[in-house]
Computed example of a mutant assay.
Amino acid sequence: MLNYCMMEVVVSFPSFILFLLLSSATVAFAQNYSEHLHFYFLERVAGSPNATAAVSVNLHPESPVGGFGNIGVMDDILLEGPEPSSPVIGRAQGLVVYSDLTGLSATTAVNLVFTAGEHNGSSLAMFGRYEQERVSDRSIIGGSGQFRLARGYALSQLVDATATTLTAEFDVYITYP
């Protein structure tokens, strides 16, 4: 035989008000911020003076950069505007793995490290597929400093390419606590 026990909960008006205030405070601390960052990325390609990118594993020496299985590293420049003389706001440091048999895309793991402006000292971790011929859509999977626990996505596209440099435009959309 089952015994059921009913308990009557009596809540006084002052304790109910206290409960509501504490609940509101908890929600306020859990607030998230959303932000759109817009900047440019400047890469000085391998072999050019002051190169900011290099192929560290080259399984296909006949290929200048890409080639299935090749691995590159970068420490590229983040700029406020598209001109190489624009103010530097940070660095893009990471790996590029040529993991596409067609050679038209690569897998990237990049830290966007901010060294100037309101985000100085913070970074975003970006991971995903870079595509040469179209807009690349990559994930923001974390961050540090102001961007700790950030989530979001980054859209980038090539806006200029010369024999020695590549310039890409970035739009990064993030949410963080």
Rank of each mutant, 00 (worst) to 15 (best):
I17Y: 00
G90M: 10
Q157I: 12
A53F: 02
A163Q: 14
V57H: 03
G117E: 05
I17M: 04
S144G: 08
P177E: 04
F127K: 11
S85P: 01
Y40M: 09
V73F: 06
D76Y: 04
T102E: 15
V159P: 03
G72K: 00
S122M: 02
S85V: 13
G121F: 01
E169W: 01
E169C: 02
E133H: 15
G103A: 04
I141F: 00
R129W: 05
T115P: 01
M74E: 01
S144K: 06
S12H: 13
V88N: 09
R134M: 12
G152L: 02
S122P: 08
G152F: 02
H60N: 10
P49V: 09
I77P: 01
V57K: 02
A163N: 09
V159N: 11
M126A: 13
S15D: 08
Y98C: 07
M7Y: 15
F41Q: 05
L22G: 12
F170A: 06
S12K: 03
Y130G: 03
Y176G: 06
R151Y: 01
P87C: 14
S86V: 10
L59S: 06
L155A: 05
G67C: 06
S12V: 07
G90L: 00
M1I: 14
D160Y: 05
L78I: 04
F114M: 11
Q132A: 10
G128S: 07
R148L: 14
A154H: 10
L149R: 11
S15C: 13
S144E: 02
V9L: 13
G94A: 07
G72S: 02
V57N: 02
L158G: 11
